[in-house]
Simulated assay, not measured.
Amino acid sequence: MMMISVATVQSTATAAAAAALTLLLLIQAASGGDPDMLQDFCVADTSSGLAPLMNGFPCKARSLVTSQDFVFTTFREAANYTVTNTGAIATFATVAEYPAVNTQGISHVRLDFGVGGVIPLHTHPLASETIFVVNGTIFTGFVSFDNVLYSQTLQAGDLFLLPKGLLHFQINVGDGPAVSFNTLTSQNPGIPFTANQMFETQIPSAVLQMSLGIGTQQIQSIQDAIPRYYG
């Protein structure tokens, strides 16, 4: 009779546990987007305000839904990028502006750039994003968990992936205006701007000094210089 040692049993059990944990993590990663919907559509009823209830808005009464609810026409016209201090502006089609995407796990944004215009460093905590260049030349990139910048200069017709939750940016590097059409994997992806989060949220000065290796005077200078982005 073949004898199996205790060490072999323990090693096999450890390997099985590791495999099960890996499978669990893969399943969790695959289901990391917005929750699955329980109906074919749920046009948001935003009459009670724009604050989402739990993971979405209540549904508009089915009898009140029309084909027009599924149309979003705001992207037809270019937005005025001169109203920002960065020369670029985002026009959103999240659930707040486009109620039809409620529970669908998707939203969109149009970016309009002047020459040299920038969408500042930011993240989307709840969504991955693709950027599709409609017109012009746009340089974009994201920073991975191990602090590697993945970037590319894009021409009209190009598509680039910005992974979920990672720091990224866009800048017009062409000699004329630029436009991109972006898709996000959440109806409400979030868009916290990095500089504003760091310097406009009452984080203690000592924390910022130690985090960035700068002094109090430099922190104040940065706070005073942050462009006010309105988009």
Score class of each variant (00 low, 15 high):
residue 95 V to E: 09
residue 138 I to G: 00
residue 130 T to P: 05
residue 73 T to C: 06
residue 89 I to W: 01
residue 124 H to F: 09
residue 134 V to H: 14
residue 116 G to E: 01
residue 160 F to A: 05
residue 63 S to Y: 03
residue 67 S to L: 08
residue 169 F to W: 13
residue 144 S to R: 02
residue 121 L to Y: 12
residue 171 I to V: 15
residue 129 E to N: 11
residue 106 I to P: 06
residue 55 N to C: 01
residue 100 A to H: 04
residue 178 A to P: 02
residue 127 A to Q: 09
residue 82 T to D: 07
residue 72 F to H: 12
residue 103 T to K: 12
residue 150 Y to F: 15
residue 71 V to T: 13
residue 118 V to H: 01
residue 163 P to L: 09
residue 130 T to V: 15
residue 108 H to R: 03
residue 159 L to K: 11
residue 97 E to I: 03
residue 104 Q to W: 03
residue 156 A to R: 07
residue 123 T to D: 07
residue 175 D to E: 11
residue 53 L to G: 08
residue 99 P to M: 10
residue 53 L to D: 12
residue 146 D to K: 11
residue 122 H to F: 04
residue 70 F to L: 10
residue 55 N to Q: 09
residue 105 G to S: 04
residue 69 D to K: 10
residue 130 T to R: 10
residue 124 H to T: 10
residue 132 F to N: 15
residue 120 P to F: 04
residue 124 H to L: 09
residue 168 H to I: 11
residue 54 M to G: 00
residue 114 G to M: 05
residue 157 G to D: 03
residue 179 V to F: 05
residue 143 V to H: 06
residue 58 P to H: 04
residue 71 V to I: 15
residue 97 E to W: 05
residue 132 F to I: 09
residue 145 F to N: 14
residue 157 G to N: 05
residue 83 V to G: 01
residue 132 F to T: 15
residue 153 T to F: 01
residue 98 Y to D: 05
residue 135 N to Y: 07
residue 128 S to Y: 13
residue 92 F to C: 11
residue 132 F to G: 03
residue 87 G to N: 04
residue 151 S to I: 02
residue 161 L to E: 08
residue 171 I to F: 00
residue 53 L to N: 08
residue 154 L to K: 05
residue 120 P to R: 09
residue 66 T to G: 06
residue 85 N to Q: 15
residue 140 T to V: 10
residue 57 F to M: 03
residue 73 T to L: 14
residue 112 D to Q: 08
residue 96 A to C: 06
residue 157 G to C: 03
residue 179 V to L: 10
residue 151 S to G: 01
residue 142 F to D: 02
residue 130 T to K: 11
residue 108 H to I: 15
residue 102 N to W: 08
residue 57 F to P: 08
residue 73 T to D: 07
residue 123 T to Y: 04
residue 115 V to A: 00
